[in-house]
Design a binder for these strands. Sequence first.
DNA 1: ATATAATATTTCGTATGCGAAATATTCGCT
DNA 2: AGCGAATATTTCGCATACGAAATATTATAT
Lengths: 145, 145
Amino acid sequence: MKKNPGAEIASLIKEINAVMNYRLREAFKDSQLTPPQMMVIFMLAEETQLKVSDISKKMSLANSTVSGILDRLESQGYIKRVRSNADKRVVYIEPAEQLNDLHAFYHQTVANFLANIVEGADEKQVNKMVDGLQTLRDFLKNDEG
Amino acid sequence: MKKNPGAEIASLIKEINAVMNYRLREAFKDSQLTPPQMMVIFMLAEETQLKVSDISKKMSLANSTVSGILDRLESQGYIKRVRSNADKRVVYIEPAEQLNDLHAFYHQTVANFLANIVEGADEKQVNKMVDGLQTLRDFLKNDEG
DNA sequence: ATATAATATTTCGTATGCGAAATATTCGCT
DNA sequence: AGCGAATATTTCGCATACGAAATATTATAT
């Protein structure tokens, strides 16, 4: 006698999201960095120049949300905004002074967190998780419902 | 050449969560209700008395977050707070006047949204999604990190 | 019986998070 | 060339969302 699958799925997504945020916050409790701030810093370690809208897409956030996150990272000296010369509407985000020493460490900390999510799972289980999520994503995006 | 599975999973969770919120907002665009407000109203249609902490657990939110959501629902007359006599620390949440006429309709709208998540999926696909999510949830909760 | 611990909720300060509107720039059409 | 549409980002107002601290009440230990 289970609840309907849609309700179960919605509830699991919320729960997983909450646990992931909790763990990410814990991983950076010594710094003052928040989960989305960490993710921006992580992404900048892999690609040293990102447009605001690239960050929004990668994180599934609205541009306005990302703009606020960047304000706070910029005011603390973690990133800088650089106007593109080719297209002056575009703003490139780059690492700044506060990351000179610690960027590699922050990147590794997030990478460890991400690796930890599936630690202990064998390949079959990992595939089951990824497949399940991709299937769900595709269903959500395709119904015009 | 895929990115590591932890990163893929984290990204999918964010994406799915964003799409679900977007659709829920769309389903209630005529009312002024927000997604968490709708979920509280939905839950109150299935159980007419809920403790604040019951709501927090079911929605995977902090009590302080729920308290704020309830403030706004209460001030608009959707719910009321009733102190328990048996234990005066406890606050029960119940539907109020603004739900007299529309509670069943709101419940049905959320139920439709939830049903729609898996609409068009056959049983095997639904099981794959639910299993994948449950496996992920269990891994996240069991590593001590 | 009473101090102390535990529990339930609220309050507070701050950081997301969104959509709509504003701003600035580039594109497309003619 | 120039004007209206399209694009990229920011600003604004508001609603989450969290943890820590405050408040109120109940349970527990002695």
